[in-house]
Every structure is written in structure tokens, then in C-alpha cells.
Design a protein around this nucleic acid. Structure first.
Lengths: 119, 119
DNA sequence: CCGTATCCGATCCGATACTG
DNA sequence: CAGTATCGGATCGGATACGG
């Protein structure tokens, strides 16, 4: 899609692998294991199906997310983090989640955190 | 600039705080302490002065980077990570740096790493 | 050395409609 | 349930020129 061959530093690549409004949230949703597309769509407020699939596909392409198809009826597809790169990135995402929680507490947005049962 | 009041989850905010091609690289460059604008410009390959200052300003605005002016001649300005949010974000950036290094090793880009003395 | 201003193409992402 | 296709406004980021 857009991974070049002429990067000048490691962080420049990782930015291309993970950029996009929804990618960190998607990775976070996959923290406990396999999740279906429908569940992701349900659990991520405000995302459109188009954006979800688009960013999910990029994450798959970049070795961060695994896509597993289970044949049969109904057709089932499950997404999960890859063992190495996916879980490593999750480490970074969890730190960011923590920063976001602190930021919300510092800026009077506790209501959002309560809605989600975080506090 | 663009921090709203209606976020629906912590990661959405953090994305707004840290998005932009150069922000992770800037934070990485500040990992050891104060750095001047000129040094940042020198050490970050391919960045323009405009982008550097723009993204630096956002990081300052969001409490991730500190800007210290030292009066006198020559006028000196030094940037550094803030004690709390800045260093916390650095934790995430360091993980990403690591992932980028692995990615480059896996994809035949060792030359970049050698240039930088990483391997 | 430190910063500001403008112009402009590339891309991101939301809305919407349609398929197996 | 799991996807694909298209269109258009908003934003991003590179180039360039100028000012403290």
C-alpha cells in the first residue's frame, strides 16, 4: 500500500505501519484474543465499516493482525494480534491508553471513563 | 488546535496528541534531555523547519514537550520531554523504535541501521 | 539561530450505496 | 455476517520565501 523502501529511520516505518485514527483502538480491542468484525464494529464507537475493514486490512498486511477464516455456517472470521509484532505493538498501545486515561482525568472528562467502566 | 471535548475513548485523544509523521521521531530525539531546534533539525533526516516547529509546538501545547528559553547572547532555546506525560510517551516510542528495528532487519534494510550505528 | 506565512498537491476519513 | 466501490470535504505535509 504505502510501505516504501527508502526509510531513513525505524520510527518512520512504524509510523506508516500504525498511522490512522482507528488502528490503536483496533489493536486495543484485540488485546484479549480473537474478535469478529461485527464485534469490533459494535465495540468501537463512531467507526464506519469501511474504515474498520480498511485499517484492519493494513494491520494484517503489516504483520500486526492475524485474520482467521473458519469455514462453515455461518461463515466466521476472527481477528487477533500476531504473536510477535502485534503483541509488541500492544505494549505501546497500552501505555498510550494509560496516558489517555490520565489526560481525561486531568481535563474533566471522567464521564467518558465512567461510561466505559474504567473508573 | 484540534483537541475536542467529545472524545469517546482515551486512545482517541492520545492519537490526536501524537499524530503526525514527525512527532515520534522528535520525542525519540529528546530521550536524553534538552536539545536545541538547530540540533533537532540536523538530527532528523528529511524534516523541514516548518514541520519541525509545527509539530514541536503541538507537543508543547499538549504537555508532552517542554520549551525553555535561556536569555542572553546568543539566544538559546532548548526542548525536552515533560517529566510525566513526555516520559510516559517515550516508553511507547521506545517500543516502536524497537519494532522498527526488527522490521528493518526482517526486510533487508540493515544498511539504514548500520548508518545510524544501531547495529 | 529561531521562527512565521502562504500556497498547493497528496491523503485521510466520513457518508453512502451495493454485493456474497 | 463480511465485505467492496465511489465521491468529496478536511487535513496533512512539502516547498519556498520572508522576518526577529
Amino acid at each position: 500500500m504505502k510501505i516504501r523502501k527508502d526509510y531513513t529511520c525505524p520510527l518512520e516505518i512504524v509510523h506508516d505501519l500504525t498511522k490512522g485514527k482507528w488502528k490503536p483502538i483496533i489493536m486495543f480491542q484485540l488485546r484479549y484474543g480473537e474478535v469478529s468484525l461485527a464485534d469490533l464494529e459494535r465495540n468501537i464507537q463512531g467507526i464506519s465499516q469501511k474504515m474498520l475493514i480498511e485499517q484492519l486490512n493494513e494491520l494484517v498486511l503489516y504483520g500486526i493482525v492475524n485474520k482467521e477464516k473458519y469455514e462453515g455456517y455461518p461463515l466466521r472470521v476472527e481477528y487477533s494480534l500476531t504473536q510477535d509484532r502485534g503483541h509488541k505493538m500492544l505494549g505501546a498501545v497500552l501505555i498510550m491508553q494509560d496516558i489517555g486515561i490520565d489526560y481525561m482525568k486531568d481535563n474533566g472528562m471522567e464521564d467518558v471513563l465512567k461510561d466505559k467502566g474504567i473508573i
